[in-house]
Amino acid sequence: MDIINRINSTRYLGREFLTWLWFRSSRQSGIFEMTDGPLEVWFDARLTLEAGGDIKESNVIKAESPTETSEAHASLLTGKLVSDARLRLVSGQKQWTVAVKGDTLQVSGVKIPALLTREDDDQLYERFMLIEEAEDTVAALFHQFMELRLDDEAWRPEVQAIRSWVHGVTAAAE
């Protein structure tokens, strides 16, 4: 398969990743175990869910905790997945907010933690390091998801748990 087809045929995994992130965040009180230690992942401000296939239907939810809304859960039940999310990432004393697009895994709209250095040059270096750290963190979370997704044994119960969550939470919201 040529590279263009490989890219296009796997884009949906970005949306599955963001939706899985929501599921895991809600189940694990936002905490993910990473190589460097625990990381908190929360969904903030704005969440977009889109239908797949040829149906271009989407729901944009703007709320302090958009994943807590009944609208968000109802969207999941109709088969929509998270296509755009604003995430708050907390690692130790550091906190970032980033916007992530599912189809491309582009990280933008980054708010970095306050800089600790004083000199101009050091501050620029620190700024770039913090942006790269945000990108690496999202990449590491995607890595966790894809390792699971590609492991048939591990994915079978995971997807069942996700489906129970989609149906169980929606029922509670109603």
Binding site: L105, F142, R163
Partner: peptide, 29 residues
């Protein structure tokens, strides 16, 4: 950037990069 390219950047093996092409959407709902 895209999910496939991200997997390549993360060092997923050739075998897994082939396997991912055979996955079907998970039908989470």
């Amino acid at each position: 950037k895209n999910p496939y390219a991200q997997m390549e950047q993360l060092g997923f093996t050739e075998e897994l990069l082939e396997k991912v092409l055979d996955l079907e959407p998970a039908a989470m709902s």
